[in-house]
Simulated assay, not measured.
Amino acid sequence: MGFEHLEALHGLSVSLGWPHRRADWETNLQIGHGIVAVDALDRVHGSAMYFPYQGDLASIGMVIAHPKLARTSLFGTLAHEMIDRSTRSRSTRGVFLNACKNDVASYRDLGMRADLPVYKYEGILPCDFSIAREVRKAEAQDLQAIYALDGESYEADRRALLAVLADRSDCYVIEARGQITGFGMRRRFGRGTLIGPVTATGSQDAIRLTTSLMAGLAGRFVRLDTRLEEGPYTEFLTALGLKATPDVTTMSDGQPKFHPQSFAISSHSTG
């Protein structure tokens, strides 16, 4: 998979009704590695990607077979190849992915197990917010603290991902007694603005970060993906009128661990 495939890849995700823009595919290509399935005329009919993280963890994503090939083995072949490549590329201790409902059975056949549902909250933001007093715009010197906080959530070093996202996002941090205790990002994605990742030591700090990330977005489409099923954070999102959908299921080979300080994920593909 290369940047020369961007237009075809965008068309492929559109064929499934996915909201990814061409620019969203470009971001994925900056972070991960992928393959495409092409015919004799070099037309793209399928894709798959993996995103390696230091600490021997990898995320699988963007596994697509064109709907016209849904009854073939293409999806399973692409998924198997991507899992195999991600483990061969390094001594991977764990592989995880976020599977659409219709794909869960296929991933089970490849040895993955269902761990947690991921809820997609989205809709038009009904009101505006201001940046919380404890929250401020992140600066370059804050990146190491951000990497460390994210590493605690995933038990892996995802700085390569976060560096790219920070360059394309509005990034905020929350402080307590002079120490950075949480961070959040927002960026253009799909139909509007994606909020995530959001990492904090507790629900109230996560809400302060999220409201700060929502500043200036009243009347605009926003999306946030979380593994949390209940609690103050999801109650806050529901109170805003954002519609919750159990959109995908996080699956793994049994090794990855996700900690409760991760309130919103970066994307379905990157986790």
Rank of each mutant, 00 (worst) to 15 (best):
F51A: 00
F51E: 02
F51N: 06
F51L: 04
P52F: 02
P52W: 01
P52Y: 03
Y53T: 01
Y53R: 00
Y53I: 04
Y53N: 06
Y53K: 05
Y53W: 05
Q54M: 05
Q54D: 03
G55F: 07
G55W: 08
D56T: 03
D56I: 00
L57Q: 05
L57D: 01
L57W: 06
A58P: 09
S59T: 06
S59I: 00
S59P: 03
S59D: 04
S59Y: 07
I60L: 04
I60Y: 03
I60P: 02
G61Q: 02
G61P: 05
M62F: 06
M62V: 04
M62Q: 06
M62K: 06
V63A: 01
V63W: 00
I64S: 05
I64M: 09
A65K: 03
A65L: 03
H66V: 10
H66D: 12
H66T: 11
H66R: 12
P67Q: 06
P67K: 08
P67G: 04
K68Y: 03
L69C: 08
L69I: 05
L69G: 03
A70H: 09
A70Q: 00
A70M: 02
A70L: 07
R71Y: 08
R71F: 09
T72W: 14
T72N: 15
S73R: 14
S73H: 13
L74K: 08
L74I: 10
L74G: 06
L74R: 09
F75K: 09
G76P: 08
G76S: 08
G76F: 07
T77H: 14
L78I: 00
L78G: 05
L78Y: 02
A79W: 00
A79M: 00
H80Y: 09
H80P: 02
H80I: 04
H80Q: 11
H80K: 10
E81W: 12
E81A: 14
E81Q: 14
E81V: 09
M82V: 13
M82K: 06
I83F: 12
D84G: 14
R85F: 06
R85A: 07
R85S: 07
S86M: 09
T87H: 15
T87G: 15
T87P: 13
R88N: 14
S89H: 11
S89D: 13
R90S: 10
R90F: 08
R90V: 06
S91H: 10
S91W: 01
S91V: 07
T92E: 05
T92R: 04
R93L: 11
R93K: 13
G94S: 01
F96K: 13
F96C: 14
F96H: 13
F96T: 15
F96D: 14
F96I: 14
L97T: 10
L97W: 11
L97I: 09
L97S: 11
N98Q: 03
N98M: 05
N98A: 02
A99E: 06
A99L: 09
A99C: 10
C100S: 08
C100M: 11
C100D: 10
K101Q: 11
K101E: 13
N102L: 14
D103V: 11
V104P: 01
V104Y: 04
V104E: 10
A105K: 11
A105C: 11
S106R: 13
